[in-house]
Amino acid sequence: MDTLKLQKGNLENFLQKLGEEFAVFAPVMSDGIVSFLELRPGQKSVLDFPRTHKPPKDIFYPQTEVMLRYGRDGLQSTEYKGKPIVLFGVRPCDAKSFILLERVFIEPKYKDPYWVARRNKTLIFSLACNDPLPSCFCNWLDGGPFNKTGSDIFITDIDDDYLFEPISEDGERFLSGVDILKEATEKDIKKAKNAKERAESSMEKPPKLDSLKSSLDTLWDETLWDEISLRCLGCAVCTYSCPTCYCFDIQDESRRGKGVRIRLWDSCMFPLFTKEGSGHNPRPLQKHRLRQRFMHKFNYFVEKQGEFGCVGCGRCVSLCPVNIDIRSFITSVIQTAQGRGDT
């Protein structure tokens, strides 16, 4: 199927129409914060916003999710039974994050019913980044401003129009049924190609990360963990703003004969994360907790899933209150290992 296009002026119409059948989630500005919210009629999405403050993972994996309700009359399940979902305007890094998260939530043996219930009903429209930000580093991690991994339909902004390119079968099926879209001309496709080249060349050349995993294998006791962790405040800004962090806690809240079991985001940066009932904590210092975060993303995840558990969205880089930059960490790991002649 060919690439289609939509005049920018028709976008709202298009989204409105989508809203009849789907719950449409798009970047919305609310109180100065841009995040993926369900579009209400008449509400505007901000597609030109470079990177949402919050990652879109909470659509499939909310910060607080009710797993079940209970009362004197028994248990009730809380699986998603709503409309099918459209996720509109996800940036390529975030679209790729879903693929990584699915290795955890939909692995062959255990399937997370809460994730699956929403995810299986979702179409992902991702939007190319014409202007990657200086803190973006998706190109370090097999991604890029025009990377199509994880998309059903790939959108490119070409001045007056949006190009819609079907990627998955679902995407193709969807696009064939929309009459507001016109066929894109060769000129349009050329424009998109130029935008891609411009965006890619505007990013700094990435370092080679082939040796990152094996370098980390040898750096468990290295003082480099001290150097970074001494500055670390131990807050959860990095983990909660990360599109690929998925750790959670489960709690029961109840009163007066009824209650809920909730699943809530947790962070390996918190001392409580690994504190055991006995009072013993296998990761007593911030150094151990920070090491866990970095090792998980760049070592354990690679070992188990075959790729890095980071998409290079750059949120933690720009939001960390003390400017701990994961990019400098990566380069210093490689340098330290090379300096010791380990790799």
Partner: peptide, 30 residues
């Protein structure tokens, strides 16, 4: 995310009241 608490020089409790679990004073969700 408790960045406000952790950035604060005055918040130095070994265990913050929000992290206490015996008893748990407040819910940990949002």
């Amino acid at each position: 995310c408790y960045a406000c608490r952790n950035a604060c020089p005055m918040c130095y409790c070994e265990e913050c009241f929000v992290d206490r679990s015996t008893p748990q004073w407040i819910g940990k969700g949002n």
